[in-house]
Amino acid sequence: MQQTYRAIVARGWPVALLIVAMSAIQSGASLAKGLFPMAGPAGTMSVRLILAALLLLVILRPWRQPIAAGAWPAIAIYGIALGAMNFLFYQALARIPLGIAVAFEFTGPLMVAVIASRRTLDLFWVMLALAGLAVLLWPGSDTTGAVNWPGAACALGAGACWALYILFGQKAGAVHGMHSAVLGITIAAIVIAPIGVWEAGATLLEPHVLMLGAGVAILSTALPYTLEMIALPRLPTPTFGTLMSLEPAFGALSGLVFLGQQLGVWQWLAIGAVMAASIGTTLTPGADTTAHAEEPPRPD
């Protein structure tokens, strides 16, 4: 009996950590949207990246480990992709509901998994995801959570950046692990954050903006990075991929609870189609789930 209990705990606590990480990420996105009236989407992105980079630099001190010269190009692209992803995602979040933005953005890792596997069955999962996205974009399909084309385009662009983030994050992290992630965030803060600093200016130095920005940095970066890095080595690849595929639902629920963003039945079904496509690429026989297994922690 005691051995059974220990086995259940050993299997369950990494899953719980990942669920908490996903909840933190989407709660952070909701908190970030609350900053938009004060700092704007770009300014919110900047204060989040800068504070997250400073926090992780202090905690992990990546300068203690030498970085091979050949690793820097991958780390640089990884960092720029991370910053561009955050910029585009916050632009999308200013225009469309959170759950829908996450669903569009999720096309990035889905395409990485599909391209890596090259299975005929994956064509079905692609078509299912495209059907879900088409429903979300269909004019007048649901008026409770309106979707506009600029917002959808920004979310899809964030998805493309997420794909680059995964591919180059794998290359950078294969040698230097979490240190590459911290350096990537630092590069994102240096290269992308000035856009928001220029747009928001001195507003970013106001105490309430810094306080809320710190909350976003912790919820969206520091806490989930830590929890996912603990959970990832202890979860089977299919389990990790399946749990990560639930993130659009977490986004929709977070938008409902914290932002009052109500979605219609068809929109929930469309989000479910994107989630099912992602789960399908992970669990169907012969699936290559390397992208899930080695994927860096979710950066939104």
Score class of each variant (00 low, 15 high):
Asp142Met: 00
Thr239Arg: 11
Leu31Pro: 04
Ile166Thr: 02
Ser141Lys: 04
Met1Thr: 13
Leu246Ile: 13
Ala81Trp: 10
Leu156Gln: 08
Ala24Ser: 15
Thr44Ile: 09
Ala16Ile: 02
Ala214Tyr: 12
Leu283Asp: 06
Met178Ser: 13
Phe36Arg: 11
Pro297Ala: 12
Pro233Gln: 06
Ala94Lys: 00
Ser278Gly: 13
Trp13Cys: 02
Ala188Trp: 01
Pro297Asp: 06
Val209Pro: 02
Trp266Ala: 15
Ala287Gly: 14
Leu17Phe: 07
Ala7Cys: 01
Ala214Leu: 15
Leu110Ser: 04
Pro14Lys: 07
Ala172Arg: 01
Gln170Glu: 15
Arg48Phe: 10
Gln261Pro: 09
Leu167Val: 14
Val191Ala: 08
Leu82Ser: 11
Gly286Pro: 02
Gly40Val: 05
Gln26Asp: 08
Ala249Gly: 14
Gly255Leu: 03
Ser23Asn: 05
Leu219Lys: 04
Ala94Tyr: 00
Leu49Thr: 08
Val216Trp: 05
Gln267Tyr: 04
Arg6Tyr: 09
Gly151Ser: 00
Ala84Trp: 09
Gly184Glu: 04
Ala52Asp: 08
Pro37Trp: 05
Ala39Glu: 05
Ile67Gly: 01
Ala29Asp: 14
Arg61Pro: 04
Leu167Asp: 00
Met85Thr: 09
Ala189Val: 03
Thr221Pro: 10
Tyr165Asp: 08
Ala273Asp: 04
Leu56Ile: 11
Leu269Trp: 05
Val209Glu: 05
Ala32Phe: 00
Trp149His: 12
Glu105Thr: 09
Ser141Asn: 12
Ile59Trp: 14
Val58Ile: 15
Gln261His: 12
Trp63Met: 01
Gly264His: 12
Met178Asp: 13
Ser27Leu: 02
Ile50Asp: 03
Leu51His: 07
Ser30Gly: 06
Val47Phe: 12
Ala174Phe: 03
Asn86Ser: 10
Trp268Lys: 03
Lys33Leu: 07
Pro14Ile: 07
Gly34Asn: 14
Pro299Met: 13
Ala287Gln: 10
Pro97Phe: 06
Ala222Arg: 06
Trp63Lys: 00
Lys171Gly: 00
Gly201Thr: 07
Tyr90Gly: 02
Leu269Asp: 02
Arg234Leu: 14
Pro66Leu: 00
Ala146Ile: 11
Gln170Trp: 06
Ala10Met: 11
Glu206Tyr: 09
Leu56Thr: 11
Ile115Cys: 02
Leu49Glu: 10
Gly280Trp: 00
Ala270Asn: 05
Thr186Cys: 03
